[in-house]
């Protein structure tokens, strides 16, 4: 319960200036849902807290076919979960959002905050990886774009330099005939940290084969991870049960899980394979033939037994 000074910049430039001035003694917060827990338990003890709530222009959530989906830094997880475009075009992300904590936390927590917190178990992260997210990072020397795969460097660690702020995440428009799903494995149906999470996005070409495949896993490695090898196994192949199973096996093989209070390592690997298989199956099945109903997505994302 250390004391800190609380600053509310009114512009991005002001925020950047504050971070530059206070350096390592400061911490940037958006929804503060991660911050408060770590501050209260003494893990984080900044002298200065810089809150982004009042910086204008960061709460946008926009979509067009050319640019895809733009998620501003203050967009909450609940904004994503409730958004009809996300539900229809990015169903795996809608699933990740609805599996995230509970409504009260979703109303505060931001998607960009979830990224910058860089927990291996963050529920929106596998879907963001599976949709090829690009991140806009602004510093005092201008801005740069970084693929999400390069943002995560370790548990709780990102490639952001001191004084940099992530202001936006952009997801390209998924290819036509795409389907996707995220499944969270946790003992509880809500308000729980995932023991394993898996997101798959599959598009089916005119030949009926998989034109593109994205598989991302959470909580089975030091960072959320793409399973590139497993994806390659399925691209250009028909999404038969055998092919899907083999791809899922490779995905699990690429994982590097640990044991903790939630799960043993071997169980995590087994579940990763099951979830990869189930999300791939669902993604391939829903790629052609319309939009999945959100209630179904929600049930599949958090339902514990198949």
């Amino acid at each position: 319960m250390a004391r800190f000074d609380y600053l509310e910049p009114q512009s991005l430039d002001e925020a950047l200036g504050m971070l530059e001035k206070h350096g390592a003694n400061s911490r940037l917060v958006a929804g503060s849902t991660d911050f408060l827990v770590r501050w209260r338990t003494g893990v984080w003890r900044p002298e200065i807290v810089v809150c982004m709530q009042h910086v204008p222009g960061l709460d946008g959530l926009h979509f067009n076919d050319d640019d895809g989906l733009s998620i501003g830094a203050m967009t909450t997880v609940q904004d994503i979960e409730q958004n009809s475009i996300v539900r229809s075009r990015y169903p795996a992300l809608a699933a990740g959002a609805t599996a995230f904590a509970g409504v009260q936390v979703r109303n505060l927590a931001t998607v960009v905050g979830n990224v910058c917190n860089a927990s291996p178990a963050g529920d929106t992260l596998p879907a963001l990886l599976a949709y090829d997210a690009q991140c806009r990072i602004v510093g005092s020397n201008g801005e740069r774009w970084l693929p999400l795969t390069e943002v995560f460097v370790g548990p709780g660690q990102t490639a952001l330099a001191a004084g940099e702020i992530m202001t936006e995440i952009r997801l390209p428009t998924p290819p036509p005939n795409s389907g996707g799903l995220y499944i969270k494995h946790s003992p509880r149906g809500a308000m729980d940290i995932s023991a394993v999470g898996a997101a798959s996005v599959v598009s089916i070409g005119s030949d009926g084969n998989c034109a593109s495949v994205r598989i991302a896993l959470g909580a089975v490695a030091p960072t959320p991870m793409r399973a590139f090898g497993a994806e390659g196994r399925l691209v250009g192949q028909p999404p038969t049960d055998d092919n899907v199973a083999e791809s899922a096996r490779l995905a699990a093989q690429a994982s590097r899980p640990i044991a903790d209070v939630r799960s043993g390592a071997e169980y995590r690997r087994e579940i990763a394979q099951v979830l990869a298989e189930r999300t791939l199956r669902h993604a391939a099945d829903t790629a052609v033939g319309g939009v999945a109903d959100f209630d179904d997505i929600r049930r599949l994302a958090v339902q514990t037994t198949w």
């Binding site: 827990v37 003992p187 509880r188 149906g189 809500a190 308000m191 729980d192 940290i193 209070v261 939630r262 958090v302």
Partner: peptide, 24 residues
């Protein structure tokens, strides 16, 4: 859960000690 060496409580919070919710 308790640490097998120190006996310390390993999950001293409702985020890791899981009581059922209505949804369960």
């Amino acid at each position: 859960q308790f640490d097998p060496e120190t006996g310390a409580v390993r999950n001293p919070s409702f985020a890791s000690y899981l009581m059922p919710l209505a949804i369960d």
